[in-house]
Amino acid sequence: MDSLARFIDLPVVADPRGNLCVAESNQHVPFEIKRVYYLYDVPSQSARAGHAHYALHQLVIALSGSFDVRLHDGQREERVTLNRPSRGLHIGPMTWRDIDNFSSGAVCLVLASEHYDEADYMREYADFERQARLRLATST
């Protein structure tokens, strides 16, 4: 069974003075990066995200600390832990995501394929489920 998202290991240039990690559009990241944002100081019992996108691709990276990402495509659900700054999780369109279980000091970096567009968001899970069912019905 295919995974709902895929891990991307980013190149690391190791150096005794400190490591350098690279993420370039259409090279290491499978889309053009049009927006970058990050979450930090998230209380450990809080959850973020809680939405899906019609068209947006994202690469989610734990720059510091760790957190879990719960993914759902309308049929299947999986949970992954991000805890390495050189490994990102590529989440494509029509995948619901919740991010939780933030460790102390966690920083979640997100590279996005598009500029912010509220019309691209599905913020109600019931709306997402309807769209997912429609997509499955038209693809069979």
Results as ranks from 00 to 15, higher is better:
100 D>F: 12
65 G>P: 02
22 V>Y: 06
136 L>W: 07
105 G>P: 07
71 L>A: 02
70 R>H: 05
139 S>V: 06
66 S>E: 14
103 S>A: 12
9 D>W: 00
116 Y>V: 07
105 G>L: 07
129 E>A: 15
96 W>M: 08
24 E>L: 12
2 D>H: 11
96 W>Y: 09
6 R>G: 11
63 L>F: 10
36 V>P: 00
120 D>I: 10
110 V>R: 03
118 E>V: 12
93 P>W: 06
49 A>F: 08
14 A>Q: 11
85 P>E: 09
96 W>C: 07
33 I>A: 09
39 L>T: 03
41 D>C: 01
59 L>I: 13
25 S>M: 04
135 R>S: 15
21 C>F: 02
19 N>D: 15
49 A>Y: 02
126 A>F: 01
47 A>F: 03
80 V>W: 07
85 P>I: 08
136 L>S: 13
89 L>C: 10
32 E>H: 12
30 P>W: 08
37 Y>S: 06
128 F>Y: 13
23 A>S: 11
26 N>P: 00
36 V>L: 14
115 H>N: 14
137 A>V: 04
21 C>P: 00
82 L>A: 10
98 D>Q: 10
78 E>A: 03
97 R>K: 14
89 L>E: 06
121 Y>I: 02
33 I>Y: 09
105 G>N: 09
34 K>M: 11
55 A>L: 14
113 S>C: 06
82 L>I: 11
3 S>W: 00
70 R>S: 12
112 A>I: 08
15 D>K: 02
39 L>Y: 14
36 V>H: 01
92 G>E: 11
35 R>E: 09
66 S>C: 08
57 H>M: 11
127 D>P: 00
100 D>N: 08
76 R>C: 09
71 L>R: 05
124 E>C: 08
77 E>V: 10
28 H>C: 02
35 R>P: 07
42 V>H: 02
126 A>P: 00
131 Q>H: 12
94 M>T: 12
105 G>I: 04
19 N>S: 12
29 V>T: 10
39 L>K: 05
93 P>Y: 03
55 A>N: 15
54 Y>C: 01
77 E>F: 00
53 H>W: 07
117 D>Y: 04
78 E>M: 06
64 S>F: 04
120 D>T: 09
101 N>G: 07
23 A>C: 05
